[in-house]
Amino acid sequence: MIDTMPNESVITFSQKIEKLITNMELVIQGKRPQIKQVITCLLAKGHILMEDNPGTGKTVLARTLAGSIAGEGSADAIFKRIQFTPDLLPMDLLGTHVFDDVRKEFIFKKGPLFCNILLADEINRASPKVQSALLECMAEHQITMGENTYALEKLFFAIATQNPIEMEGTYPLPSAQLDRFFMKVYFGYVEEETEIAIYKSYIQIQQHLEKIKQVLSMQDILDLQEEAELVFVHDEIIQSVSNLVRATRAHEGISVGASTRSGITFIKCLKANALVNGRSFVIEDDMQEIAVAVLDHRLVYKNKEARQTVLKQLLSREMDRLSKLKLH
């Protein structure tokens, strides 16, 4: 039967994803939704921006993810981390031409961007020049230096973090550049019980982080990314995405609504999210889970109140519409 085919493949893929999540949860406790969102971004071939107070586990999450995929071998993913500071130059990211004494020519010394998983820590502390260089690379998947163009790795996943409270000495990302991130995830504090559990077992967690096992190969990730593209999206879901995106443009509380590119990104993320949840089709729950993360940072609100309510309202309207639909 035809219909069972994707199902079976989905089962094997979802097992792999489940393995990845379980592995990450050894280190990151009580953050399953965030882990899932990160993986969703990874599978949607996008990049993620994480924002929250220091010490909530952003960096640890990125490291864990990298550790779960990256390894020592040549076929394994390479993980790089850059700490963004105000004096960071684009060169420090992209790499630079250096003079080779032996060959008597300039050769290109690859920067840290040539990796599979990049953790760009505290991205908003770097100068706009650096930020835009990074974001351009994320969008283009290639680096142009002078006359030469260098392609990035096939699997290139950037995890950027930023601290909201450090207003002084920061260069906030312009909204046009925020658009390059598929999702913006608010990390948040864990619940009390989890927090106590973390305190009790911080030593083990530390050990886990140090000895994190690689559970998936890079090829697995690439396969999963391809599989995510095959997830089925019902027309009504697409309709809802369109409704939601268009509603943001027409809403009085929003000065700049979501673009068409946002819609495409949204659908990509929905597919990936469905796969992360072990499904070969998108349902309304996928929308509920990622809509805010995907759309919120793309919108320019007129005031604070709108920021807190508008998107949720629009979303809940679409959710209600979907839940009441009769589809067949």
Partner: peptide, 12 residues
């Protein structure tokens, strides 16, 4: 039910 609703597969 959600499979019936949103997926392009037949129900087994």
């Amino acid at each position: 039910f959600l499979k019936a609703k949103y997926a392009n597969q037949l129900l087994n």
